[in-house]
């Protein structure tokens, strides 16, 4: 059981602030670090893993600073986003070398166990340069797990994985968290975070925008005004009927169709087909027009 503590951590490059005064404590279980691209997730992860000095504040693992302290790697594993690996090594050699570098008493058994954990045993004798992106990612996870660290940090671990590999990796992270390890992974996709982690830290423009249980975050993200573009066989008639529903906050009508401001996402999407059916209007198009992640994040920040 380990705790990774960030206390007032900031990092700037010249005039650009990449990470701005983040204080957070990560305990056992899976935590998702969610944020749009360029929010500072990677910078934050690098500081956690001891690969970058905070400009201000400190990062400590069980009381030990992570910067300039190689001893922390006995308890910490890192899977970086850059999918660099020694392509001339086979999967087995790569993980076995990691086990030996950790000075494990039985590196052979540890390597075998880690490779089985990520289901890479059938491909372990192939060179890393012949692996697919997802396979390389998995073998890198095996190398990071070979010493059974109490803290595992992963930067965008699901990038480049096919759906089956993604499910498998999610299950793996979930199991590791359930076994009492502190697992943190970053992602810019809400659904990924939601499926794996109990706790979510949302980071936007270098600041911690929201933090806590994923259900709370989910509610914050869904219980916000939603904008939909609707086209139908009779836009004007539909607009009148929609205004009668409490789930709709406003409707505007123009040449391209209707723009509906819904006050409640769930209710509106159930109401619309019911209203259309009752009024005998054919809905030709229903497009959520602000579903981009950036708008979700900007909403969170302003909330």
């Amino acid at each position: 059981m380990s705790t990774l503590d960030l206390r007032g951590v900031s990092r700037w490059y010249g005039n650009v602030v990449a990470v701005n005064d983040i204080t957070v404590s990560l305990g056992p279980g899976v935590t998702g670090l969610l944020g749009p691209n360029g929010a500072g997730k990677t910078t934050l992860l690098h500081m956690m893993a001891g690969f970058l000095a905070p400009s201000r504040g400190e990062v400590v693992l069980d009381g030990q600073p992570t910067w300039r302290n190689p001893e922390i790697y006995r308890h910490l594993g890192l899977v970086s986003e850059r999918e660099a690996a020694h392509g001339f090594l086979t999967g087995w050699e790569f993980v076995y070398a990691s086990a030996k570098l950790h000075g494990l008493s039985d590196p052979r058994a540890a390597a075998r166990k880690a490779i089985e954990l990520v289901e890479m045993a059938p491909a372990q004798d192939r060179k890393l340069s012949t692996y697919s992106k997802g396979m390389r990612q998995r073998i890198r996870v095996a190398a990071a797990l070979v010493h059974e660290p109490s803290v595992l940090l992963l930067d965008e671990p699901f990038n480049g994985m096919d759906p089956r590999q993604r499910m498998h990796m999610m299950a793996l992270l979930h199991d590791l968290g359930a076994a009492g390890r502190t697992v943190l992974f970053s992602s810019h996709i809400l659904e990924e975070v939601e499926q794996v982690s109990g706790t979510v830290q949302v980071i936007v423009a270098g600041r911690l925008a929201a933090s806590g249980d994923y259900r709370t975050i989910r509610r914050l993200m869904t219980h916000r005004p939603h904008v939909f573009a609707v086209r139908s066989s009779d836009d004007r008639k539909l607009a009148v009927s929609l205004m009668g529903s409490p789930s709709v906050a406003g409707v505007s009508l123009d040449a391209t169709g209707l723009t509906v401001h819904a006050s409640d996402y769930g209710t509106f999407t159930r109401e619309l087909p019911r209203i259309a059916l009752a009024e005998r209007i054919r809905v030709r198009q229903l497009v959520p027009s602000d579903e981009s992640l950036e708008s979700v994040f900007s909403y969170l920040v302003s909330a």
């Binding site: 190689p70 790697y73 850059r82 020694h86 990691s98 990071a144």
Partner: peptide, 15 residues
């Protein structure tokens, strides 16, 4: 250059 040094540096080996 290619970032593989990270694999070596994330080990408790004195620099």
């Amino acid at each position: 250059d290619d970032g593989t040094i990270v694999h070596i540096l994330t080990k408790p080996v004195p620099r």
